[in-house]
Each structure stands twice: as structure tokens, then as C-alpha cells.
Design a protein around this nucleic acid. Structure first.
Lengths: 252, 252
DNA sequence: CGGATCGTTGAAGACTATCAAGTTATGTGG
DNA sequence: CCACATAACTTGATAGTCTTCAACGATCCG
């Protein structure tokens, strides 16, 4: 591979790390929390595209905070094919589902070149009960993940194919906005197959829906580059008000 | 209603409570953890069938440990209809998704007369960082919930209707076994509608599938009373090997 | 015992998956 | 840097699974 590895390096100090407030969002940590953070965050590490961060069954040694890039989180079915349960982007922490049995329950793979912080789990668990603020942050992050998974469940259960894809795009759009990027210019880091797998649709359906949204003038599609032309209409699609099918010609 | 309320009562002491090890499974708590538990667990409380324990939007004041009975956990879609994200039974703690925003994100309703323990959240969060063992127990429980939601997601995404219902029944069966009850005699506490809602199938499909499993000699159905006649065949159905349709007559 | 909720069964139809074939993009090696 | 192999993507035709609509039977509870 001609892709050069991002350099591994020890984090100097979390208060100087520009990603720290991303990893642990909210109020700035107290100084005692900060020194604890410096101890438990081992080092910065670079992942090449396609590299696997952890596998289901691996003993839990670290959690990981994503500084930049993105990961896909997936499990394997009994038949051996993958089921994506979500995509994680910068600012998120992955691996929480490993805490229960002290071994990873999912796979995490880099969708692009990605930078992460390794969080030593043994040190973390010792530190948490001494630092209430940090403790609560981690509880909140886990709580949030539970909510997000319930929302995904709800989306797959209740929404039609066009609604799901619209929801998916709007999620990406909102994520960009939170990071102060344009909410309308989206660079997909995952394949059509991976999108479909995550929201429970076939590749062909994803492709057809992109075309349909394009034809309706709602988005522009150029490979992995999506431009949202009309946020309002996209929201209408999400709400099931539009673009249910291309056969609205006959509606009197 | 002629249903008599279960009496509300203050928990005397968690080490004398026969449900305590259910609420917080694993090794027995240290004595310091025990006294902490006694402080944060407010009181025992009875819920009548149909009673709502908390609603989405309610400020987070307590988590709840289920001592006996069962709850359905659901959200409301924008259109206002319910989406069940799971059923919780004795031994489980509910309300974790409220921690992130300090308000409940779901509804919890008793499916039958149910006894719960109220866990004061403010006291809990203060206690957690002083009691490492208790801290880890709660982290594990939240981690487990993340795993369970991912599994449900996987089941709905990858399995056909018969497979989903088989999975659902096997889950109930395993839950009974863990509680030292017969794994084959199942008393459903939820309606067909609620089962279908949870595993993303229509009422009619659930009904038809029960009939089909009955006709195949795999289960017995008498209203809400299900008897599993053949665990092996039910597992085959879960794995997609059987009962795909009733049209296997023509298979040469 | 009577209304209401819950459950069952049948027929028709919609949505999406699957199969098939072709096009475009990606990236590796010469 | 180009060429080729592979993976990713698009589009059409067909088919299957499950939903929806409808009607009826069962059960629960006041």
C-alpha cells in the first residue's frame, strides 16, 4: 500500500489537545479530571483506510475516541455476513458494548484514514470513581448511545425506504453542522452497500433512491459527493409527504 | 378497577431484600456498597397493569429496578403512534437512556401488576464515584443494554418474519430459564399487537405465524399461553431452515 | 350480558429484494 | 502513467414477502 501511516504519538496533554473537548464534550474538565485524563489516554494513533481497530471477541483493553475520520461498527451474523449497527465519526467514543462481558461485541473498521485516542480501560475504570465529573460524562455518553440505537431501531421499524435514506442524509447533514461544516455538501465515506446494510435496504434500492431524489431536484449526486439542494423537501421526504413513488403524475 | 394496589413500602435494607441480587447481579456487594445502596434505593412500589411509570420528557429523577412483573418500553413517532423498543422483566433496570439529557426519552408502562424499586438518580450519581464496585455494575448494565439493542437491530434487519418470531419466543424461553422457570411454558404478558410492534411485523402476521408454528407441531397456542413442544425445531426456524412457508409440499 | 379490545383468517396489493446486465470508478502492477 | 482487473454503482424486469383491508370469532371486564 502506498498510503502512508499517520504517525503514532503520545498525547502530550489533554488540555493542549485540540480534540479533547470533542472527545469529552460539555463543560471544561476540572484540573483534577484533566490530570486523570492524561493518565488514561495512552496515545494518539493513526488508522489506514480499511484497517480494523478491534474485532468481536477481542478482550476489552481500550476504548477509543475518534479525533478525525470515521469508523463503521458491525457484527457478523451466524451466516457470517456483516450487519452494520452504525457509523462513528470524530468526537465519538466507541467500544462501550464491550464493557459488559469485558470483550468486544462488534467490529470497528476505518472507512478512511482515521485518527484515534486510545483510552486504557483498566485505568479508566479506576479513575472514574474518583472523578465524578468524568464519571458522569461517560455515563452520559453511554446513555446517548442507547438513545441513538433506539432511534435507529425506530427508523428501521417505522419508515419506508425513501424516508430512511432521507433520515440518513439528514443525520449526516446535522453531524456536519455540529462540526461547523457545510450542512449541504456531504462526502460519503461509506459505500452504497454499507449505507443499505445499516438502514436495512439493498444496494439497488439505495442507488434507485439516490436517482429519484436527484430527479426530484432534492439532491445532486456525483459518486460519493452528495449536495443537498433543498433541505425542506428532504425533510418532507423523511416525513413521508413526498417522493413516495414517481407515479404522482396520475394523482388528480 | 377492582385490582388492588400493591402496597408501597420503604425498603428495609438491601441485604435483606430477596430481589437485591437480582437488581445488581454479580458478586455480592461490599458492605460499604450495601449501605450506599440502602441510601439510594428509596422504596418499593407497586404498579397496576397499564400504569405508566414514566413518560418521554419527564425530568430524570429516578431509575427503576424491576422486582417482579414486566414493562414495555416505547417511544412515540412523529405521527403519534407507539414504537416499542423492548420489554423489560424482573432483574432489569430501566431508564438509562434518560441520563444523557436528564429527561426520559421513552415511555414505560406495566404490562401486568409489577413491583419496582425506585433508585434516586441524584443520590446514585453521588454514590457511584465513591463505590467502584457499584460504579462498574452500572456501567456493565448500560453496556449490556447497548448490546441488546444492537442485537434487536440485527434481528429486525436480517431475519424474516418467522425467524423473528422464533427469536422472540426463544428469548422469552431463555429469560424464564434464567429465573429457574420452565423454558417451555410461556405466559405472554403482551398482546399480539405489541409483539408485532416490537419486532416490526403486523398483528396479522404474528397471528398467522403462531398458527403456522402450531400447525407444524412446534408450539401450542392457547391465547396468551404458549407451550414450546420442540425447542430444536424452533431453533431451526430461527436459523431459517424450516417453516419458511407452508408450501413445502411441492418440494421434490 | 354487551361493548370493546384482542385475535384469527382470507384476498388483494404494495414495497422492496433479487436476478441480470451493463457502466463507471478505483487502485494495483507493469 | 497507462492498462487492466476488480470493486462499486446504476438501471430494468421479475418475483416474493409482508402489509393492508375486510370480516368474523373469541375473550375480557364492567
Amino acid at each position: 500500500m502506498s498510503v502512508k501511516n499517520l504517525p503514532d504519538q503520545k498525547c502530550q496533554s489533554c488540555d493542549k489537545c485540540p480534540y479533547c473537548e470533542i472527545c469529552l464534550p460539555g463543560k471544561s474538565p476540572t484540573s483534577s479530571d484533566l490530570s486523570a485524563l492524561n493518565n488514561i489516554i495512552d496515545k494518539r494513533r493513526g488508522l489506514n483506510k480499511g484497517e480494523i481497530l478491534y474485532k468481536a471477541g477481542d478482550p476489552l483493553q481500550r476504548l477509543y475516541a475518534i479525533k478525525s475520520g470515521s469508523l463503521k461498527i458491525y457484527s457478523l451474523s451466524q451466516a457470517g455476513d456483516e450487519q452494520i449497527t452504525g457509523f462513528s465519526i470524530s468526537g465519538e467514543i466507541v467500544g462501550f458494548d464491550a464493557i459488559f462481558e469485558k470483550k468486544h461485541k462488534s467490529f470497528a473498521q476505518a472507512l478512511e484514514n482515521t485518527a484515534i485516542c486510545e483510552i486504557d480501560y483498566a485505568q479508566l475504570s479506576r479513575a472514574l470513581y474518583r472523578h465524578q465529573e468524568m464519571n458522569m460524562r461517560f455515563m452520559r455518553l453511554m446513555s446517548q448511545e442507547i438513545s441513538v440505537k433506539k432511534e435507529l431501531l425506530m427508523m428501521i421499524s417505522r419508515e419506508t425506504a425513501p424516508q430512511r435514506l432521507a433520515s440518513f442524509l439528514l443525520h449526516l447533514s446535522e453531524a456536519q453542522e455540529r462540526r461547523n461544516l457545510s450542512p449541504d455538501q456531504i462526502k460519503l465515506t461509506m459505500t452504497r452497500y454499507e449505507i443499505g446494510n445499516c438502514i436495512s435496504l439493498s444496494v439497488e434500492t439505495i442507488s434507485r433512491l439516490f436517482s429519484r431524489l436527484h430527479d426530484a431536484g432534492i439532491i445532486t449526486v456525483r459518486g460519493r459527493y452528495i449536495t443537498i439542494l433543498d433541505q425542506t423537501m428532504l425533510r418532507d421526504v423523511k416525513n413521508g409527504n413526498l417522493c413516495q413513488a414517481a407515479k404522482s403524475e396520475n394523482t388528480p
